[in-house]
């Protein structure tokens, strides 16, 4: 690990200001992603700004009947929160499907949103990687790419966003709240928060330098069956190969009257296609929805299997929702 200065600011504003003032500063929350990457010198911040003492660890109700989740709320606390268990089960299930008990006790809402890809070549500093070292190339294209993207990839990068939580946040239409070094606050809809790689895969989100996440808000709950189905190489403690977050409400004649679907493991951001949801409601057919989701999907060789796997995972999810 490279040496760094360590700061423990007491206020949100000091934290954002420090981040703007210091060259290559990083916030550290749970540290479960950042320290992993710092040990490998993939991340080499000159200053670490410890945000753990900031007053951002509360879950509160919003006036609209939704939830405001502080940036520092731990993944385990969020999954155990009574409102999440009753009204936002898809989020609880996604969180519980991720990492391990120990990691969830440290991992925070903001840190999880910003966790970086698990692409093998991003982790291997001896290999070219446009995300780690812009302009160096992409070793995953034509390499081992079993875990890579089949949608929204570019000639520069085919990595995926590894988070389970983000997929649920996408299906719930969450909003990311931030404050910048000048003290300006803004709200970013989750759909616009994560970016596709394009030719700048090193830029992963809409955040500006020094911008601090303060909370993630959820609109009022959506009624229906909440499911998170994660397909992975082990029964537990493994990243998703493909995952589906779904909220489906049963209607007349065995068809859903409402469907919201988001997918993990497929792209550089959680994948959501409104036309697929409309197709599911209109036809009741998971295959019709899968056709829309997978429109333009392209495998890289070793990850071709993700395309039929997504279809089968969606079928199983829809069947489970309509059975429930």
């Amino acid at each position: 690990m490279k040496a760094f200065a360590y700061e423990r600011p007491a206020t949100v504003q000091d934290a954002a200001r420090l981040a703007a003032e210091r060259p290559s500063a990083r916030f550290i929350a749970g540290g479960t992603n950042l320290l992993d990457l710092m040990k490998l010198q993939i991340e080499t911040p000159a200053t670490l700004i410890d945000v753990n003492r900031l007053p951002l660890a509360e879950v509160t109700e919003t006036e609209e009947g939704g939830l405001r989740i502080g940036a520092l709320v731990r993944n385990s606390d969020l999954a155990a929160h009574p409102r999440v268990r009753t009204d936002y089960a898809v989020l609880g299930k996604a969180l519980l499907a991720g990492a391990s008990g120990q990691l969830r006790n440290k991992a925070t809402t903001a840190g999880n949103l910003l966790q970086r890809t698990r692409c093998y070549y991003f982790y291997d500093t001896t290999k070219p990687c446009n995300k780690r070292e812009p302009g160096s190339g992409c070793a995953a294209i034509g390499g081992f790419n079993r875990i890579m993207a089949v949608l929204g990839a570019s000639d520069s990068c085919i990595a995926t966003n590894p988070s389970d939580m983000n997929v649920a946040m996408r299906v719930l239409d969450a909003t990311v709240e931030t404050v910048d070094p000048q003290g300006a606050r803004r709200s970013i809809p989750i759909a616009a928060f994560h970016r596709l790689p394009g030719d700048t895969p090193q830029i992963e989100t809409d955040l500006k330098p020094g911008e601090l996440i303060t909370a993630v808000t959820l609109p009022k709950p959506v009624e229906g069956v909440h499911l998170y189905r994660k397909v992975r190489d082990r029964a537990s403690y493994a990243f998703a190969t493909v995952s589906v977050a779904a909220i489906i409400a049963k209607g007349e004649g065995g068809k859903p009257r409402l469907a919201k679907l988001a997918f993990g493991g497929l792209a550089h951001k959680p994948w959501r296609v409104q036309a697929a949801e409309a197709a599911l409601v209109e036809t009741g057919s998971a295959d019709a929805a899968a056709d829309r989701v997978l429109d333009g999907a392209r495998g890289q060789g070793s990850n071709d299997f993700k395309i039929p796997l997504t279809r089968r995972t969606l079928r199983a999810t829809v069947a489970e929702a309509l059975r429930a």
């Binding site: 490279k2 040496a3 200065a5 360590y6 420090l18 003032e21 210091r22 070094p181």
Partner: peptide
């Protein structure tokens, strides 16, 4: 020394200083 460095940097305007590899720090 670290605290002084922090204070002086906090006092400074937006201009980001050039990156230098920091020396190991103890606390």
């Amino acid at each position: 020394a670290l605290a002084t460095l922090g204070a002086s940097l906090r006092g400074r305007a937006e201009a980001a200083p050039a990156a230098v590899d920091p020396q190991p720090q103890t606390m």
